[in-house]
Design a protein around this nucleic acid. Structure first.
Lengths: 131, 131
DNA sequence: ACAGAGTTGACAACCGTTCTCAACTAGCCT
DNA sequence: AGGCTAGTTGAGAACGGTTGTCAACTCTGT
């Protein structure tokens, strides 16, 4: 067993996607990232962008969320688990942590005999400047 | 102002969809519901199923969720606000209530000046019979 | 340099969802 | 009843995001 997956190459494209992911803080769709790369002068095929993002999600390097209409959006994973408070008018996002929620979900799941628990929690509201 | 929306007709199709929604407890996709109606002998066009479900969601009669791969699934709404504990293998669903979470989200949002707060919370795990 | 596994990208295929539009109804007015 | 009209339906096309295909390409170790 090697330290990295065997036969996984750090190609130009993968590096470009990784670099792009570090260049913004918010969630972007795969197509946004594809365009961003093209404008930057590092064009990467759309299929490759999807493949690479998928891998990064599997590796836990990137967070995957779904918009309300089912589109996948990606974002560099910060090291701590957290949730988002999103303004439903302007989209402004605040990261929030909720140890209480983490505990609560695990407890509830345990009560019903569910294991291997994960959860998704997003809070929507109207931000101060949109009220 | 009338008691019901003006110009909204209780057609055969709408009644059939409403009846179908009362006939199961778990979440189903629009296409599942479309098939269910066909097998029942009340065939309703797929587009109509989508339209009707959309309306019911808007009216708050039906809950809309997204599966992990972005597909929309629908379910008759019970009157109390609650969340779902879903088995990621077999799909078994348990309704859970979390006054603590409700309070927490409102508090967090308030701290950041956000108003008119709503939230989505889904818990995923492996149910006892799938472990 | 060579071999061979891994990777890429243009494009087609897929699949859930929405749109289009002519035919059809339900409800209302006379 | 008959007719008018806004609302509704359904078959199929269109759409948009995502995944599959496959021949050409590129690392990496030998």
């Amino acid at each position: 067993m090697t330290s990295t997956e065997p036969g996984l190459r750090p190609t130009k494209q993968r590096l470009a996607v990784a670099a792009a992911m570090s260049s913004f803080e918010d969630f972007r769709s795969a197509q946004d990232i594809h365009e961003l790369l093209a404008h930057r002068g590092d064009p990467v095929g759309l299929a490759t962008v999807y493949r690479t993002l998928q891998r990064m999600v599997d590796a836990g390097e990137v967070d995957l969320l779904r918009t309300e209409d089912g589109e996948a959006i990606y974002r560099r994973c910060s090291d701590t688990h957290h949730h988002h408070l999103v303004c439903r008018d302007c989209g402004a996002t605040v990261e929030v942590e909720g140890p209480a929620v983490e505990r609560w979900t695990r407890a509830i799941a345990g009560e019903h005999g569910y294991g291997d628990v994960s959860h998704t929690l997003e809070i929507f509201g109207t931000c101060p400047s949109c009220r």
